[in-house]
């Protein structure tokens, strides 16, 4: 293995880990504040990749317009999703939230993925696949050649994670989110508005998740049915890192990203989806409470 290969592998793993950490964190924010497990989380990544593919490849728009359209579109979709499929469970018992939200979000994911695959195949491309190419293949920094795609992914993912961190740490809204995830009833008694928090989480979370999907499409082509597997990846990281924990999501995302990239290098890329599933079951057997315990952020 040359030094260049090693550098490419590490950058590949870390950038993939950045995407995974971002989507795992947005998934766990929803879980911590609304107790809804959004099985359609990965589906929003696929939708983000699909829209980005459409915007960049099929229609001739400049990239800032495309990025803004993607973020605004998915922020709106997040609001709609929250109002239609998350809000109805707000007043229900934990058991009803659990069963109801899985049925609804799983049903949503299946319906959307099946329709996306079907209509994309009929209208755009008979072999649906969502991928983007970055114009600069190699970037030279400090005398080292980096993959331009991977570097872009890493920078954007790190910026998004930092933005989420600042939002949670330093704004009144962030305090409300943390209060709700630590003690729901207590926070509501002290005047936190759970509706507002849940709307914000879905508005920002779905936009960030769709953007993460578009980023992932730079590195790996996605298919209409990739969504449920990506939800599982995010869930695995939540299980490793703990619900609502940003350091946990970073650690879990980095671990899985590196593991997948190394597996693809050693055994071939067909085995890399198996890694996250095996890690998922191994963590359950070894440490059911997650590496960082049950502590919320």
């Amino acid at each position: 293995m040359t030094f260049q290969t090693l550098l490419d592998l590490v950058l590949g793993g870390v950038s993939l880990g950045g995407i995974y950490a971002l989507v795992a964190f947005t998934l766990s924010l929803s879980l911590a504040t609304t107790h809804v497990l959004n099985v359609a989380h990965g589906t929003f990544m696929v939708l983000g990749a699909a829209l980005a593919t459409l915007l960049f490849r099929v229609t001739p728009v400049s990239w800032p317009v495309a990025v803004l359209a993607l973020l605004a579109g998915f922020a709106l979709l997040g609001l709609f999703f929250e109002a239609a499929f998350v809000r109805p469970f707000a007043a229900k018992s934990p058991q009803q939230i659990l069963v109801g939200s899985i049925l609804v979000t799983f049903g949503f994911a299946l319906a959307v993925e099946a329709l996306l695959g079907y209509y994309w195949a009929r209208l755009v491309d008979p072999q649906p696949s969502f991928s983007l190419t970055f114009p600069r293949a190699r970037v030279t920094l400090l005398g080292l050649a980096f993959s331009g795609t991977r570097l872009t992914i890493l920078v954007v993912a790190a910026a998004a994670i930092t933005a989420f961190h600042l939002l949670l740490r330093s704004t009144p809204l962030g305090r409300a989110v943390r209060a709700l995830s630590q003690n729901y009833v207590g926070a509501v008694i002290l005047g936190v508005n759970p509706r507002l928090v849940s709307l914000t989480i879905y508005l920002t979370g779905i936009a960030a998740t769709a953007a993460a999907g578009a980023l992932l499409a730079l590195a790996i082509p996605l298919e209409p049915y990739s969504g449920l597997r990506l939800t599982l990846v995010a869930m695995t990281i939540v299980v490793i890192g703990g619900v609502g924990s940003l350091p946990g999501a970073l650690l879990g995302g980095g671990l899985l990203g590196m593991a997948e990239v190394l597996t693809a290098y050693v055994l071939g890329s067909v085995w890399s989806p198996v890694v996250s599933l095996l890690v998922f079951f191994s963590v359950l057997v070894v440490r059911p409470e997650g590496l960082w315990g049950r502590r919320a952020a």
């Binding site: 497990l37 099985v39 058991q95 659990l98 939200s101 899985i102 449920l228 597997r229 939800t231 599982l232 869930m235 299980v239 067909v270 085995w271 989806p273 198996v274 599933l277 095996l278 998922f280 079951f281 191994s282 359950l284 057997v285 059911p288």
Partner: peptide
């Protein structure tokens, strides 16, 4: 049963689906 029943509720449901995906990947690979 050993990994699955570490979980309950929504997590259990998702883990059982992960079991199906894991088996599918092994058969395909």
């Amino acid at each position: 049963a050993y990994p699955l029943f570490r979980l309950s509720g929504a997590y259990f449901a998702i883990a059982t689906f992960a079991m199906v995906l894991l088996i599918r990947h092994f058969i395909l690979n």
